[in-house]
Write a protein that binds this DNA or RNA. Structure first.
Length: 299
RNA sequence: GGCGCCUUGGCCGAGUGGUUAGGCAUGGGUCUGCAAAACCCAGUACACCGGUUCGACUCCGGUAGGCGCCU
């Protein structure tokens, strides 16, 4: 399967890890994770880390502030290295943005200058949303036109970029539906909603049996960064009685799955594959699809 | 059995005789270095029956359900 990359997307609890592992049993492939939370080390249970080897998992301490910008080149390097070794990169993940970034050339604008973010955030908070937005309009009218003043995160980001002589306005690539870096088969796992919710509830309960309370306690000692603090369950497990925490984590995970479904529908050229069956069967279908794709793309 | 209180959209929860509270959830949308994030948009509810009134979710009476106290 020379030169083909397989991208495997799917909502949490759709069984991505197991399917990916089953694929590696069928063809010489290596898994690259595209997950904004599994990049963190220290929360294997809470972040549902796969028991099988995957690249770009647990690469940063919880205190680190993660970003796609930092992740993307690592993912590209991993994919290229696997291809160079004559194997198939299998990019697996549920974080839409990271998934896209791993497979495509997003041409991300530069990171904020040191201290710039804090400075603009302060302006936004002190002067108010409207004032910050007006300031942005002075510096970068196009960017301001696309942003709602309430969108603090993006207004601040746009201000950073305008100041640095760049712009938030995308140059060429679009976030959705752009091209891939290599010939790529993009597969999304589909599990009927009721079944997915059942799996989420079951998995969450199992997390508690496996000891996430201890895990979370240790994680807090590591002073999680702003990005790490967003991990589902971190706050809930730390602050709620067990039974309430279970319910809260299930509810939030369900919401996350709904959000992922939005991404799934939007991935360009994605092939949807049923995943409410043994992973081996799903894997076999994916491999068959990959073989067909490869044959078609051969001159 | 008697007395008192309560009953608001999927949930929580304000409120007023006549302009949509709000929050959460839900659905749709946006998205380029925080994405398990952030932002935008949408849904017209007041337990039931009758009365007063130009007009009641808001006042009066009754019915049902819930809570509390009393014999």
């Amino acid at each position: 399967m020379v030169d083909l990359v397989i991208g495997l997307f799917g909502p949490t609890a759709s069984g991505k890890s197991d399917v990916a592992a089953a694929v590696t049993a069928l063809i010489p492939a290596e898994v690259v994770s595209a997950d904004a939370m599994q990049v963190y080390d220290g929360l294997p249970i809470l972040t549902n880390r796969s028991p099988y080897p995957e690249r770009l998992v647990g690469i940063w301490p919880l205190s680190h502030t993660a970003s796609v910008g930092e992740y993307a080149p690592l993912a590209h390097a991993a994919v290229d290295e696997i291809l160079a070794a004559g194997r198939t990169p299998l990019v697996v993940g549920g974080t839409g943005l990271y998934f896209r970034a791993a497979l495509a050339e997003l041409e991300l604008p530069p990171p904020p200058l040191p201290g710039a973010r804090e400075r603009w955030e302060r302006l936004y908070d002190d002067a108010g949303a409207e004032a910050a937005h007006t300031r942005l309009a002075e510096l970068d009218w196009d960017a301001a036109a696309r942003l709602h003043p309430n969108d603090r995160r993006r207004v601040v980001r746009a201000l950073e970029l305008a100041e640095a002589g760049s712009s938030l306005v995308p140059q060429r690539e679009r976030l959705f539906g752009g091209s891939w870096r290599h010939p790529t088969l993009v597969v999304a796992l589909d599990v009927p909603k009721p079944e997915l919710e059942r799996r989420i509830a079951e998995r969450t309960r199992r997390m508690f049996e496996r000891g996430i309370e201890d895990e979370v306690r240790r994680a807090y000692a590591a002073k999680p960064s702003q990005t790490a603090a967003a991990i589902i369950g971190l706050h809930e497990v730390a602050s709620l009685p067990r039974e309430e925490a279970v319910g809260a984590v299930i509810a939030r995970t369900r919401r996350y799955a709904a959000y992922q479904r939005k991404w799934l529908r939007r991935l360009d050229g994605v092939v949807i594959v049923a995943a409410d069956r043994p992973p081996e069967e799903t894997a076999a279908e994916i491999v068959a699809l990959a073989r067909t794709r490869e044959r078609l793309s051969r001159p």
